[in-house]
Design a binder for these strands. Structure first.
Lengths: 122, 122
DNA sequence: ACTATTTTCAGTAATCATTATCAATTTATG
DNA sequence: CATAAATTGATAATGATTACTGAAAATAGT
């Protein structure tokens, strides 16, 4: 665990927005100005692989990274791309296990709902 | 509806694999050798926007395109990236509506399960 | 059917997110 | 502390996708 990796992990764990790699890079440079973008990408990838953070893959957007708290899903606005959490109480994890009759390694559920801001603009 | 767009739609609708844009391009050239890759991308995007086909966004892979039959979800192998359909009977659509107390514009559920071939290799 | 207007095309260049490379440095280990 | 293994910063390269272009085709109006 290097200083860089720890910093990146801290940034994700203390953020409530769903940061892109670029966003993490911007944050990281505030405390470690010489950190490189490659290092950010590499560590985000490693942390996601070890299940310490979560990668969210979206249409037409760079990947987002999120804290890894148990089974919460996401709502994304198809217009502006904003991402919101669905609270864990409403998690689909149990339903998926029950229907498939097995526990998946993991899953990603992205519900698309136009957000209020975008609704107003129309 | 141009000949090119119709061809692309036909290819998706008659395929049971989950083709990438490149895959559609390869298929399309068999009947229309001069079709360009840009045309394939443009039309896949348009068709997906109109809800005539479905775009599947996956980690570390080019997007896949699928026939648009009602509410079926996907299982993807995190090792080899193979995609399989979950039959519509097991669709999560109703559960999502019930839990969120609203009908989303759409949703994507990707369940990650290591496929048998990859399991054997270990 | 004929022409004008709009859309779409093929071909190619450009963009953007992400990975790979590599010598230098840091971290873990005996 | 010494040595091996892993990671870093900097930058080049890659791969998927989009943007641009003048030409061709589709559509609409008369």
């Amino acid at each position: 665990m290097t200083r860089q990796r720890q910093l990146i992990l801290d940034i994700i764990n203390s953020s409530y927005s769903h940061l892109t790699a670029e966003g993490v890079y911007t944050e990281a440079r505030k405390t470690m100005p010489k950190i490189s973008l490659g290092t950010v990408y590499r560590n985000l990838g490693l942390l996601a692989q070890n299940g310490e953070i979560r990668r969210i893959v979206l249409e037409n957007q760079p990947d987002r990274f999120d804290r890894c708290f148990p089974g919460h899903d996401h709502i994304v606005c198809p217009d502006c791309g904003a991402v919101r959490d669905i609270p864990p109480e409403l998690s689909m994890a149990r339903t998926i296990e029950r229907k498939l009759k097995m526990k998946p390694d993991s899953y990603e559920l992205t519900v698309k709902i136009v957000c209020d801001e975008c609704k107003d603009k129309k």
